[in-house]
Amino acid sequence: MTKPDLPKRLTSKIRAAQAKVEDCCRNVSGSSFNYEQDRAELDEFEADPEGYARRRYGNHGVDSYPVQTRIGRIREKVAYHSTRGEVRQQRIKDAVAELDRVEQEVLAEVAGMRPSAGRVPWPKPIPAAEQLLRDHRSELDRIVEQARIDREKDDAGWAEIQRQEEEENRIRREIEDAELKEMLSKMSPAQRAEWNRRIQAIIDGIRSGNYGMHNIGDLINKVSKGA
């Protein structure tokens, strides 16, 4: 059936009803997606609580406040969602029925009007609710997958930075070791003995707690200079 052109105000009524259907489908799809994410995280915890805490919270144990708070909230959200499925589906049905009612109301109203200028085409139909749900879910999946790809790229980039730093440190250590060996080779037996005594004093100081990381560099420099 070919739909008639409409005055703009009637077009706005139809578009508003269409937008309500789209919003309902988007909300239901988003809620279902969030539920699946929460359910998956809860399953991960229940399958291996210690592993879950270690992977997601580092030094915080299973019974720590952050872990227990997170899991408690997820349990609440999962339980709540399980009771709202039918309500959300009904909202979609109601929105679709309202769109149909508005369209029939507009058809009846425009049929009783005299022809007038300035009319615009009947709004383009929106996809069926089932298709809207699939389309929005596909978009959410695409966003999550892109986030995963971006995260892997970031991880790879960070790993390369770490590799480069480790290589630079290795080269630096080799140079320092070579310089140290050259310096030691030029020492007399007495100087070598004094060097060893000073190094042992630093080791003993670290073990006793008298020296820390904040001053160990200065101590080594003094030893290197024979201070």
Rank of each mutant, 00 (worst) to 15 (best):
I92Y: 00
K93A: 10
R101T: 15
V102M: 08
E105W: 07
V120E: 05
K77C: 05
A79R: 01
A79I: 09
H81F: 05
A117V: 14
T83G: 03
H81Y: 04
I161P: 02
V78N: 01
E152R: 05
V96I: 15
Q162K: 10
V87A: 15
G157F: 02
H136V: 10
H81G: 03
Q162T: 14
K153D: 05
L107H: 01
R119H: 13
R163S: 10
E152K: 11
A129I: 15
L99V: 08
L132Q: 00
E145S: 05
A95S: 12
R151D: 09
R148E: 10
R84Q: 10
E103A: 07
E76N: 05
T83E: 00
I92D: 00
Q90H: 04
E160I: 12
E139K: 11
M113T: 10
R88E: 04
L132V: 01
K124M: 12
V102S: 07
V102A: 07
R114Q: 14
V102K: 02
E98C: 08
V106Q: 03
I161K: 09
V106A: 06
V120Y: 08
E76Q: 11
I149K: 06
W122C: 05
E152H: 03
R75T: 05
E103G: 02
S138P: 04
A97V: 04
A95L: 11
D141Y: 09
I161F: 12
E139T: 15
V106K: 07
R70F: 01
V78Y: 01
V102Q: 03
H81P: 03
E130M: 14
R163F: 06
D141Q: 14
E109G: 10
I71W: 00
D135S: 06
R137A: 02
P125H: 12
I161L: 09
E98R: 07
V120T: 14
V78A: 03
D154W: 04
L99W: 02
D100M: 13
R114C: 14
V120I: 13
D150T: 12
G112K: 09
D155S: 15
A95V: 07
R142Q: 07
I149P: 06
R163I: 12
L99P: 02
A95E: 06
K124E: 04
P121Q: 11
V96K: 02
D141G: 11
Q146G: 15
R148A: 15
R101N: 13
